[in-house]
């Protein structure tokens, strides 16, 4: 279970940036947020610790009644998309329901993240595009109507059936895909953008989730610049 904190974002697209020593990093820009904590799951009540994080806004007409109730109870605007992020129970107190989260609240430069999204749909495709089959190989010598086929799908009487999981043509893409261990090259706090090295599944403007990498040592949350603690303890005094 990935209990590293994360955020929802939208993929903006790819670009490149220069590091100080002149090296180029090809990056994907992900606008994380503005995310809002729309709820919490606590070990006492729910048996596990998680943050419910929302992004975007949804017109009142389109909000289902059960979720409208949940948003109302939390005192936040209806979000377009809500996802739960399992976190370490000890970190739960650092977040408040209604709190806005930006990239700099969660991510640090240099850390590794996992990014999931829905890959671009390619429809019903053949085995060459979908599974990188080689096709008929020698196209010629009388080969016809077989150039992009997959070849044999099994044996004869034994086992007498096609094995489960045999790679065949079918729907390709439009499926959840996760890319592990992408390095965060830069965090733009003001715009709430993370620049992540490498590619990210899905088209531009698609929602993606960015989480601390599960296969790397956990990275502590960036220390808030002394603004989060007083706000979390006594939000009323800040306003007054």
């Amino acid at each position: 279970m990935n209990t590293n904190p994360g955020l929802i974002g939208t993929k903006l697209g790819n670009t490149q940036i220069f590091l100080d020593d002149g090296e180029v990093r090809r990056v994907t820009a992900i606008k994380t947020g503005p995310c809002v904590v729309v709820g919490k799951r606590t070990p006492e009540k729910d048996g596990y610790a998680a943050l419910r994080i929302g992004i975007g806004e949804r017109r009142a007409k389109l909000v289902t009644k059960p979720s409208a109730g949940a948003f109302k109870k939390a005192g936040v605007e209806a979000a377009r998309l809500v996802q739960e992020f399992r976190i370490d129970p000890e970190l739960l107190d650092r977040f408040e329901v209604g709190q806005k989260l930006g990239a700099a609240d969660i991510f640090q430069e240099g850390q590794f993240v996992d990014v999931s999204g829905t890959s671009k749909g390619r429809g019903f495709t053949g085995v060459m595009k979908r599974h990188n089959f080689a096709g008929a190989g020698t196209v010629g010598h009388g080969t016809h109507e077989y150039k992009r086929h997959g070849g044999s799908i099994g044996m004869n009487m034994t086992p007498g059936r096609t094995l489960r999981g045999q790679k065949m043509p079918g729907q390709h893409g439009n499926k959840k895909a996760t890319i592990l261990n992408l390095r965060v090259v830069r965090v733009l706090a003001d715009e709430s953008i993370v620049l992540v090295e490498g590619g990210v599944p899905g088209p531009r403007n698609a929602f993606v989730t960015v989480k601390g990498a599960i296969k790397k040592a956990p990275v502590p949350l960036p220390e808030p610049p002394a603004k989060e603690e007083p706000a979390a303890n006594a939000p009323a005094t800040d306003e007054g």
Binding site: L12, G13, N14, T15, Q16, I17, F18, A29, K31, L188, E191, I193, L195, R204
Partner: peptide, 15 residues
């Protein structure tokens, strides 16, 4: 390629 995304244009401009 990504010329129509203002945020990316800003990142590139800064470079």
């Amino acid at each position: 390629m990504s010329g129509s995304v203002p945020e990316i244009d800003a990142i590139e401009q800064a470079q």
